Simulated scan of single mutants.
Amino acid sequence: MDASLRAEVRFPSGNDTCAAWKYPGTNGACVVMAAGYGVTKEPGTDRFAAAFRAAGYTVVAFDFRNFGGSGGRPRQVGRVSGQLDDFAAAVAFARTLPEVDPDRIAVWGFSLAGGHVFRLAAALPGLAAAIAQTPNADGLAATRNAGRYTTGRALARVTGRGVFDLLGGLAGRPPRLLPLTGAPGSVAMLSTPDALGGDAALDPDGAYADWPRTIAARAVLSLPAYRPGRAAARARCPLLVVVADDDRTALAGPAVAAAGRAPDAELVRVPGGHYAPFLDQHDTVVAAELSFLSRRVSGRPTGPATGPTSGGHSG
């Protein structure tokens, strides 16, 4: 990424600060972006942020606390409530930028952060729009599905490590880490077929060597209870949901259902797995997201969302 296109910034969240890239825009609108669970802002947002910036949007792409360049300890520990607070803090920071109209801010997230987008659209006042890309809309369904791609022994070991990590955290011990992905039967967060392609999708050139591919094991205990797609019915702003039909990690069905429940949603479906928007469907997804932002946020109407299958829902 050309350093002249963005600047490093920090903003407060809780008792720490979050690190972000700020891309200057020209049209007064802003997109606040965050990546999937355990994925830092560079591999998770760079390509999309560059496209949004080229279209005139200011972009604030940030790391959640305890990850990447952001503050917070223990490292690699993600808490849903804390990440939602970080997203709200990033939006508040974006509203202070002199080139940004505070009423024309959208949020963007993929995977777990895409799930957060449903919650933000329902609870964060004043958003202009929200984009959930291959979102984890139902942690329980995703966890059950993930169990199909591992062994009973591996699942028991992962759960056991999660319990020990949780107890150790209460005692102040360092986190017990899991690899984000691993082969079926290994002790890893995910062994789904498309998750195994995450490195090739997010870091094909090995440019993000500083990205730790790990997560605190206690995450496996909390994610099944996180079902953010249910919040879509209460969304206060227009919502774009991008679904990959062969997603074996976050699953397409819960995301499609969430879009159907939202008062004002557009659904774009593309072929491929969880990382299809980073792979052969990238141009299609970027075009759909820019169309949505243009019609809903920038104030410059264009044609309808593009993609192999797209549609709107109102109710």
Rank of each mutant, 00 (worst) to 15 (best):
R295E: 05
L190H: 15
P238Y: 03
F164H: 04
C30S: 14
A34C: 07
A51F: 05
D203P: 01
A200L: 05
A259N: 07
T302R: 15
G185S: 13
A90H: 10
D280A: 15
G36M: 14
R144K: 14
A121V: 05
Y37W: 12
G139Y: 14
M1H: 09
R144P: 04
V32T: 03
A128G: 13
R6Q: 13
G68C: 09
G253N: 08
G162R: 04
P277N: 11
L120R: 13
N15T: 13
A20C: 04
A232E: 02
L177T: 10
Q83T: 07
V80C: 04
A20M: 02
L267M: 09
P102R: 08
P174E: 12
R65G: 04
F164T: 12
L240A: 11
V117L: 01
A123Q: 15
V187M: 10
G185H: 11
T143G: 11
V158Q: 06
T214S: 03
A171P: 06
D247Y: 02
A233L: 01
S294T: 10
P238M: 04
P224L: 03
R148M: 06
R161F: 01
G36D: 15
A195Q: 14
V32R: 01
L178A: 14
R218T: 12
D205G: 05
T17D: 00
F11M: 07
L190A: 14
A233K: 02
G78H: 08
F62I: 03
A201I: 13
H274W: 02
P204A: 12
Y208W: 15
